[in-house]
């Protein structure tokens, strides 16, 4: 690392706070200005749970799958909210950023680019809620969602579960996005990752109706903890010791950032993608 490279590892907390305030306001302004775009994305997030409610309610007609039609509706409604709140698209965007050169101005700033992306991501989720919440209410009413297990206590337990899930998924997928520095086409990789969320995270179906091997595998991987766990906490299906185990699993380094980051470092590749791009810029 040359001495001219700024040190991204230790920005002053005060400067960072100021940066967050400004960047978040700018990102919020952007999302409000392009609210039509946000609305279209939100419509996209509604589609999958909507279709899956129909599929699973059809399956549960006249047979016992362990869940009633109302419980399926509640599950997928909460799944929509959790998926929206944990959603991150940067793994699709990095390829474009690198190819088009849009990354360069972000890297020239004396702040790690992840802070810019966090602001962008949070502001989108915030603005998107304006569409997601009414959609969730409508979905619950139309499909007769059954929230009998949920209570104030489960809602309070849901808050930290959701926040940890947001952080977990953001960190993992942001690390995954860094793959675009080495690979020119990352769409296949991203698609595979989405499939993991679909099955191991429980977006396609409650893990309880999935095959045994998927359920077992899901405990060791981060997908369950970023989607399925918060859903079940909100519905009041996870309480007591299991709740605390889940909270513990969510930030565990093994299942999150640590794995990806150390993997990248172990191969003798530059410690951070930022430095690598700086090397490219200075060449």
């Amino acid at each position: 690392m040359s001495s001219s490279t700024p040190d991204f590892s230790k920005p002053s907390p005060r400067a960072l706070l100021q940066f967050y305030r400004g960047q978040f306001a700018a990102a919020l302004g952007f999302n409000l200005a392009y609210r039509g775009m946000v609305a279209l994305w939100v419509l996209g997030s509604v589609m999958q749970p909507l279709v899956l409610i129909v599929v699973w309610q059809t399956v549960s007609e006249g047979r016992d799958t362990g869940m009633t039609a109302g419980q399926y509706a509640a599950y997928f409604m909460v799944s929509m909210v959790v998926s929206h709140m944990t959603f991150i698209w940067h793994m699709w965007e990095f390829e474009w950023r690198i190819r088009s050169g849009y990354f360069s101005p972000l890297l020239l700033r004396p702040v790690h680019p992840i802070h810019h992306d966090i602001c962008e991501n949070l502001s989108y989720k915030f603005v998107g809620l304006v569409g997601i919440i009414p959609a969730a209410v409508l979905m619950a009413l139309i499909f007769g969602a059954d929230f009998s297990g949920a209570s104030w206590r489960s809602l309070i337990a849901f808050a930290p579960a959701l926040l940890l899930a947001m952080a977990l998924r953001f960190v993992i997928e942001w690390c995954l996005a860094l793959a675009a520095f080495w690979m020119t086409k990352v769409a296949s990789l991203n698609q595979l990752f989405d499939a993991f969320f679909l099955f191991l995270g429980g977006q396609f179906a409650p893990l309880g109706v999935m095959p045994e091997w998927i359920q077992t595998l899901s405990f060791a991987l981060p997908f369950r903890w970023s989607i399925y766990f918060p859903i079940q906490v909100a519905l009041g299906n996870i309480t007591g010791a299991d709740l605390w185990i889940g909270y513990g699993m969510q930030p565990s380094d093994r299942s999150g950032r640590g794995r990806v980051a150390t993997d990248v470092e172990a191969r003798g590749l530059p410690t951070t993608a930022v430095e690598r791009s700086h090397a490219c810029l200075h060449r």
Binding site: V55, A205, M210, P211
Partner: peptide, 8 residues
């Protein structure tokens, strides 16, 4: 499809 038809 496999998951769905495991149930029905």
């Amino acid at each position: 499809i496999t998951i769905v038809f495991n149930q029905t």
